[in-house]
């Protein structure tokens, strides 16, 4: 997979640079656990948006869905005392409905994905602030059991002092299923095909509307799952800013991982590596003295731009070589 070689190279470079510059602090088990957990949490939502980007669409509502679910779940559990299974079921149902509505509006009413999900971005956060009365939601000291799906660590045999953070299990499952879906099933092929040319796919007898809707449903479901895991991890969610801008982190990770916003391109492995790169960068900025923390976003932005530019340059050189043959 030559597509992910570039981004993998950047990741390895940044990791080595961080190890050197941080005197090895980077490699401490606790830090690695944290990094893996954050990569897992952001990776899940990035895979979701990856599906939508592959169809040539965009989902800007992810952060607000995270907010809606992340604040809504503790709100249902602690304020209304709903039983856990029913509250979780409600979270799944709502995420699914949101994706379905996005998909229907985009395919049947032919609204632009940017517009539909931008309105979603505004609405879901607004609705959340409404029903929570703008109050911080959290589990307090309750629900330790279920929260362990985000906070627990799974000990590894023969390895002392390091455990695999539980969200990593979710990421692995999501990534493996998504990878198989995208590469091994006919539906994955349909998504890649319609992302490149919706019309040709339709003329080939593919139900393109249904596939696009499916992509938005997957995206919102994974955003909802992300919302559940995020709130269980941090244990408090402020409706005003919980999940703010996370759609942009997710889109950035997907783009870093080789997804083209023009549609039709993208790999799950690439997206996960892209997410990991973003998280390592943020980690590096806190661990390393050389870079002042407040220029964090400048560094991340520059790396994304550099990665995308490098990618295009490689393609350009490759196509020149083909042309000159």
């Amino acid at each position: 997979m030559k597509k992910i070689v570039g981004i993998l190279g950047i990741l390895i470079f940044v990791v080595i640079a961080t190890i050197v510059l941080s005197d090895g602090i980077f490699l401490r088990p606790f830090n690695l656990e944290n990094l893996i957990r954050r990569t897992a949490l952001f990776g899940i939502i990035s895979i979701g948006v990856g599906f939508v980007i592959i169809t040539g669409g965009i989902d800007l509502s992810i952060g607000s869905v995270i907010c809606l679910i992340g604040c809504g779940l503790p709100w249902l559990l602690t304020v209304h005392g709903w039983p856990l299974p029913i509250a979780l079921f409600a979270a799944v149902l709502i995420s699914l409905l949101i994706g379905l509505i996005h998909g229907l509006l985009i395919t049947k009413l032919k609204l632009q994905p940017f517009v539909v999900t931008l309105c979603g971005l505004l609405m879901y956060r607004g609705v959340t602030r409404g029903f929570t009365g703008d109050q911080t939601q959290g589990f307090g000291s309750e629900f330790k059991g279920i929260r362990s799906i985000a906070t627990a660590e799974i000990p590894l045999p023969f390895v002392e002092g390091f455990g695999v953070p539980a969200p990593c299990v979710f990421l692995v499952v999501v990534a493996v299923v998504a990878g198989i879906f995208l590469n091994q099933t006919i539906y994955g092929r349909y998504l890649l095909a319609l992302g490149r040319s919706e019309e040709a796919a339709r003329y080939s007898g593919i139900n393109t509307d249904r596939m696009v809707i499916l992509a938005y449903v997957i995206c919102s479901l994974l955003a909802g799952l992300g919302g559940v895991l995020f709130v269980m991890d941090v244990n408090s969610a402020q409706p005003v800013d919980f999940g703010n801008f996370y759609e942009l982190y997710a889109i950035a990770a997907a783009v870093l991982g080789g997804c083209s916003l023009r549609g039709g391109h993208g790999t799950i492995v690439g997206i996960v590596i892209g997410t990991a790169l973003m998280q390592v960068l943020r980690n590096m900025i806190t661990l390393v003295d050389v870079i002042p923390t407040h220029i964090e976003f400048a560094v991340i932005g520059a790396v994304i731009l550099g990665g995308v530019m490098a990618d295009e340059l490689v393609k350009l050189v490759a196509s020149r070589r083909v042309a000159s043959k």
Partner: peptide, 8 residues
Amino acid sequence: QQGLILDM
């Protein structure tokens, strides 16, 4: 446009 997906 309609017959082929050129990049596949």
